[in-house]
Each structure stands twice: as structure tokens, then as C-alpha cells.
Computed example of a mutant assay.
Amino acid sequence: MKIIDEQLLNEVSVQAKESPRLRKNYNFHQSLDEKCHRFINAVEPGTEVPIHKHPTKDETFVILRGKVRVTTHRDDGSIIEDVVLCAEDGRYGVNIPKGLWHTIEALEPNSVIFECKEGQFVEHEVDGILNVEEK
């Protein structure tokens, strides 16, 4: 059993701060080929998560610590919905349906979310990242 506690969140947050991407995953799945990917994602302000979609997979985010903004987008990049996840404010998570453009933004240092989505891992293809400059 792996306990998700303050110590684990702190360890992953330190790794996120030291990462050039300003984010770090801690995977609970043993392989990228597993049918369900479960992980915590420590994100720091300034990390860049491109607007992307998963054509065949729903994705769920649950806030464990801090604040993150989740936005969903139309094909032209305009925002459909914008929500700040913060346990203190009673907004704990979102489920993003498959095929919907979305991104996250860390609003506070040491923010950590739990993510779950269907495996297998597939690198984003050209049509999986939204390039609003081309629109």
C-alpha cells in the first residue's frame, strides 16, 4: 500500500520545483501500458501545460493541495469553462470528457492534483495539441 500523505506531496513538490517543466508526476500505475493511469501531479506557477485533448479518454483531476485553474476550450482556443479547484473553497475536482480541449494552470506554489485517465500512454499527436496561432 502506498499512502498519499503530506510527506509524499512535499517530496513530489520539491521535485517539481527542481524540474525545468515546473511539474512532476508520481505514478501509481506500474507501466505506461496499464489500462488505468493514476498519479499525483505536483505543479508550480509558471508550468506550461499546452491546451490539449484526449480523443478517446476522459480525464479526472482532484485537488489535493493548493489551487489550480482548469479551463476547457473551443477549437479556436476560446474558453468554454474556467474553474479554480481549491479544497478550501469546496471545489474539489473536474471530469473532462474525451475530445474536449483543456489545460491546467497552477495558481499557488506546492499545488498537487490527483489525475486519473484511461491508459495506454500515447504521446500527443499534432491534432492533440491546440495551436491557436494557426486558427
Results as ranks from 00 to 15, higher is better:
1 M>H: 03
2 K>L: 04
4 I>N: 00
5 D>S: 06
7 Q>F: 09
8 L>C: 07
9 L>N: 11
11 E>D: 14
12 V>F: 00
12 V>Y: 00
14 V>C: 00
15 Q>V: 00
16 A>V: 04
16 A>Q: 04
17 K>W: 00
18 E>Y: 06
18 E>M: 13
18 E>Q: 15
20 P>S: 05
20 P>M: 05
22 L>W: 01
26 Y>N: 06
26 Y>A: 03
28 F>W: 05
29 H>W: 09
30 Q>Y: 09
32 L>T: 13
33 D>C: 05
33 D>Y: 08
36 C>P: 00
36 C>N: 11
38 R>A: 08
38 R>K: 12
41 N>A: 11
42 A>C: 02
42 A>I: 09
44 E>S: 00
44 E>L: 02
45 P>F: 02
46 G>R: 01
47 T>D: 02
49 V>I: 15
49 V>W: 10
50 P>E: 06
50 P>L: 06
51 I>A: 12
52 H>Q: 13
55 P>K: 13
56 T>Y: 11
59 E>H: 08
60 T>V: 15
61 F>Y: 15
61 F>V: 04
62 V>F: 10
62 V>P: 00
64 L>Q: 07
67 K>G: 07
67 K>H: 07
68 V>Q: 15
68 V>Y: 15
69 R>E: 15
75 D>E: 14
76 D>Y: 06
76 D>E: 07
77 G>V: 00
78 S>L: 06
78 S>H: 09
80 I>H: 02
80 I>D: 12
81 E>P: 01
81 E>Q: 11
82 D>G: 00
83 V>C: 06
83 V>Q: 10
84 V>N: 03
84 V>H: 03
87 A>W: 08
87 A>V: 11
88 E>R: 14
90 G>Y: 07
90 G>T: 13
92 Y>A: 06
92 Y>C: 05
92 Y>H: 13
93 G>F: 11
93 G>E: 12
96 I>P: 08
97 P>C: 06
98 K>A: 15
98 K>D: 08
99 G>E: 08
99 G>M: 08
100 L>G: 04
100 L>A: 10
100 L>T: 14
101 W>H: 03
102 H>L: 04
104 I>Q: 04
106 A>S: 13
107 L>W: 11
107 L>T: 11
108 E>D: 13
108 E>Y: 06
109 P>W: 10
109 P>E: 14
110 N>A: 10
111 S>Q: 05
111 S>G: 05
111 S>V: 04
111 S>I: 05
112 V>Q: 01
113 I>M: 10
113 I>P: 01
115 E>Y: 10
116 C>F: 14
116 C>D: 07
118 E>C: 11
120 Q>D: 13
121 F>I: 05
121 F>M: 03
121 F>T: 04
122 V>K: 13
122 V>R: 12
124 H>D: 11
126 V>C: 05
127 D>I: 07
128 G>E: 12
128 G>C: 13
128 G>M: 07
130 L>Q: 04
132 V>G: 01
135 K>Q: 04
